[in-house]
């Protein structure tokens, strides 16, 4: 099962490598990972996507909690939540293709952020599924480059991950 785990950790050197190290050490997989400081400069927030059955996820969260730099964590997939990923994509578009691409971008509520005679650079945000959907929709075009941030997320309602 796909899980989104959000972690608040001390903004200390080495904290990130402890989290990442845990996954390779214990043979857990990471599908994506994002990390940045929070409004509180002493904390950073890390969101990662992993997968596994119930027992495995329980082990992962227990081991994450054991890391001294980890202050708090939540499995966002355990409740209603919002998840977003940002994708920048550069593709080749010439002639009649150009209009077609623009239409698709509009349908997916993307933005063209740069262009040349033969290329478009497009920005798109949404769930990973939506980004995958866009890639499928423009599969006729030649994709030159894709840069995705990985997922970040937040709980719905009043629930917060904070200290």
């Amino acid at each position: 099962m796909r899980r989104i785990i959000s972690i608040l950790m001390e903004n200390e050197p080495g904290a990130l490598s402890r989290v990442v190290g845990l996954f390779s050490q214990r043979n857990y997989n990471i599908d994506s990972l994002t990390v940045a400081p929070t409004e509180d400069q002493s904390l950073s927030r890390l969101t990662l996507i992993t997968s596994g059955d119930e027992a495995r996820i329980e082990q992962i969260t227990k081991h994450l909690n054991r890391i001294i730099d980890v202050v708090k964590l939540v499995d966002l997939t355990g409740g209603a939540h919002i998840e977003r990923e940002l994708m920048l994509i550069k593709l080749k578009a010439t002639g009649a293709r150009r209009a077609e691409v623009l239409r698709t971008v509009e349908i997916f509520r993307g933005q063209v952020v740069d262009q040349t005679d033969s290329t478009y650079s497009i920005q798109l945000t949404g769930t990973s599924e939506k980004l995958d959907g866009f890639l499928a929709a423009i599969s006729d075009c030649k994709v030159l480059e894709v840069a995705r941030t990985g997922v970040t997320g937040i709980s719905r309602g009043t629930k917060v991950l904070a200290i």
Partner: peptide
Amino acid sequence: IDPASISKTVT
């Protein structure tokens, strides 16, 4: 004392 030791190999 270590939650991670519980149900690691034997439930």
